[in-house]
């Protein structure tokens, strides 16, 4: 598709890109620390991924291949819309296949397929401050990060355990990066947290409305907060994916009727399709094949 005339390559002007690029380098130099940046108003609303879009626009080049997912799916409306935005403003190639992409912008998921060193993940972040729900004031949370004072977070997690028998955080589960900064991995399910730890891919996080950028370089220790007697664990399902039969992937629950009927399918649509192409079949497809 042709580039939209009248706008710079990838929409942002060069001065804005430079400002974001400088913030990205500092973010990489101090993993997990949130760098304030002068986020711009984008032609889509705050909350629609303006942070991720500004990061992608600042790093993307003509030869990049971009994949955009929302909830793990390439076909969700906002993922479609963001992909189209970059096709229009940068004229770049896009893909739905994880292995073909070298920049993957995401909201709420990390692909199931192992990432490579030549890939960059860009996360859309709503509230970058992991301590925000415990302490609404930026002046206070900034002090806590400076003093490495994370007692409040541990108290909160421990209260969960004493009240519910579980840590009641299931997504945006806080992590400690390189044993220094506590970081919000964005609202990915905690299922995806282990994928950040020592990943060969660079991970960049952009929060447009809150005007923060942060990063996890490759091969960085990222530890999901836990306790010796209550170690971190990820979600598991008793079911396999109804379409591809996968058992180790994150599953979405699909309500099939009004009478309690439901099935579970992979949230990562590309992963699921690949498995089906390779001949795997889950219960729903297997049953159909038998007819």
């Amino acid at each position: 598709m042709a580039e939209t005339s009248g706008y710079n390559f990838a929409y942002l002007d060069e001065q804005t890109k430079r400002m974001i690029r400088r913030a990205l380098l500092k973010a990489i130099a101090v993993p997990g620390y949130q760098v304030p940046f002068a986020s711009r108003e984008m032609p889509m609303p705050y909350g629609w991924g303006t942070g991720g879009i500004q990061v992608t626009a600042s790093i993307v080049g003509r030869d990049d291949v971009l994949k955009v997912i929302d909830q793990g799916a390439d076909d969700t409306t906002n993922a479609v819309s963001i992909r189209k935005f970059f096709k229009r403003t940068a004229g770049i190639e896009t893909t739905t296949q994880t292995h073909e992409a070298n920049i993957i912008q995401t909201r709420h998921r990390i692909p199931e397929e192992d990432l490579r060193a030549d890939q960059i993940m860009v996360f859309q972040v709503p509230i970058p401050e992991p301590l925000r729900f415990l302490e609404p004031r930026e002046t206070e949370t900034r002090k806590m990060h400076a003093l490495e004072e994370y007692g409040l977070m541990h108290v909160k997690l421990y209260e969960d355990i004493s009240q519910h028998g579980h840590i009641a955080t299931t997504y945006a589960y806080p992590v400690a990066v390189k044993q220094r900064y506590v970081m919000d991995p964005s609202p990915i399910p905690k299922f995806d947290n282990p994928k950040i730890n020592r990943s060969p891919a660079l991970m960049l996080f952009g929060a447009g409305r809150e005007k923060r950028i942060y990063a996890v370089p490759p091969f960085t220790d990222v530890h999901s907060l836990d306790f010796e007697d209550f170690p971190f664990e990820i979600q598991t399902w008793r079911e396999a994916c109804a379409l591809c039969g996968a058992t180790g992937s994150f599953l979405d629950e699909i309500v099939t009727d009004d009478a309690g009927g439901r099935m579970f399918v992979c949230s990562d649509t590309d992963f699921c399709e690949k498995r089906r192409e390779a001949g795997h079949a889950g219960p729903a497809l297997a049953a159909e094949g038998a007819v």
Partner: peptide
Amino acid sequence: LPHYVDFQSELE
């Protein structure tokens, strides 16, 4: 916007 992945985590 869809939040079904996080909602699924809560459901579980």
